[in-house]
């Protein structure tokens, strides 16, 4: 993962941001909102993941988008503006085409937002957040993340050792393969239980189980986080206000209806745009700052 400015913020800032944009992307079907969300999600994903994101977006997301947009009018026939009839006599309506595009747009946006989320919210940030709510759960998560790669390595070691006595899942007829697979699993289980006893000792020996356990984190909520959080909260407030006044919605069936853009509506669009582009803005500002500092040295 590349180091980005936004991921260096406190996990609460990161999490709140993604929670907000994800929920908004799912709820607000207004075309302007959708366009804003999709574009900024794409921009952010490219900033975070670089060329890999571009490739993913083109290879998987675009076909998915097209497929969903085409499939919807083929199966949904609601709406009043009939364009033509299919061979089986079902009508294809303008509303269902538009709705298909909107739904697939929302879907694509959510996926792109999640790819950004994955790049920013690393496991320890997630564990930290949940540690505040449920310390025991956060420790379990951390242990699971420790054990998964370890077990994977051990399964490989066992499988290699068994392969060298002719007992691997890739050797022999299907029945023997299945038996060898089960054997590897059984060796793995024995090994895991045996070693877990020692890990339990290590935990006990370092005082695990004493009352009043605390949860340490390497994150600190500093001034920068406070500012970002305040800005975010303000923008989210404006967007929610817009939602309360019905600025963000759209009606598709039976006929398409959008509220006309009022000055207040435009302000809400702007707020939503700023919210969605926040990580990209932070990134660009930091890069410019860095360049100016570097040029002065």
């Amino acid at each position: 993962m590349r180091r980005t400015a936004f991921s260096s913020y406190h996990p609460i800032v990161n999490f709140t941001y993604f929670a907000a944009v994800l929920v908004f992307a799912m709820l607000f079907m207004h075309p302007v909102f959708q366009a804003v969300a999709l574009v900024s999600a794409l921009v952010n994903s490219v900033l975070l993941n670089g060329r890999r994101a571009v490739r993913f977006n083109l290879r998987f997301l675009l076909p998915l988008f097209v497929l969903m947009a085409v499939v919807n009018p083929a199966f949904s026939h609601a709406g009043v503006t009939i364009l033509f009839y299919l061979r089986d006599g079902n009508p294809v309506t303008l509303e269902s085409i538009l709705y298909g595009i909107a739904a697939s747009c929302a879907y694509a946006t959510v996926i792109v937002w999640f790819s950004c989320y994955n790049a920013v919210m690393t496991s320890d940030k997630f564990i930290y957040l949940f540690g505040r709510i449920m310390p025991a759960l956060s420790l379990i998560l951390s242990m699971v993340l420790r054990f998964v790669p370890r077990y994977r390595q051990q399964v490989k070691a066992i499988s290699d050792a068994q392969k060298c006595v002719g007992r691997d899942v890739t050797q022999g007829n299907p029945l023997r393969r299945a038996r060898n697979g089960i054997r590897i699993l059984s060796v793995m289980t024995t090994w895991a239980l045996e070693n877990a006893i020692e890990t339990a000792d290590a935990m006990k020996s370092r005082g695990y189980g004493l009352p009043n356990r605390t949860s340490f984190s390497i994150y600190r909520f500093d001034g920068r986080d406070r500012n970002a959080f305040a800005a975010m909260a303000g923008l989210i407030g404006v967007v929610l206000l817009g939602a309360a006044f019905g600025e963000n919605g759209i009606r598709y069936f039976p006929s398409v209806h959008v509220k006309h853009a009022s000055p207040f509506g435009v302000a809400v669009y702007a707020a939503y745009f700023m919210l969605c582009m926040l990580p990209a803005a932070i990134q660009i500002v930091e890069e410019l700052k860095w360049k100016s500092i570097a040029s002065k040295n």
């Binding site: 420790r146 890990t199 000792d201 290590a202 935990m203 949860s215």
Partner: peptide, 27 residues
Amino acid sequence: LQNPDNGIVTDKVWHELAFGLESLGYG
């Protein structure tokens, strides 16, 4: 303990360093 892998409980170095202190309830 003898086996370095069995002694480690958590997934990150910093968390492992803090593990004992968390148990003791330090701030």
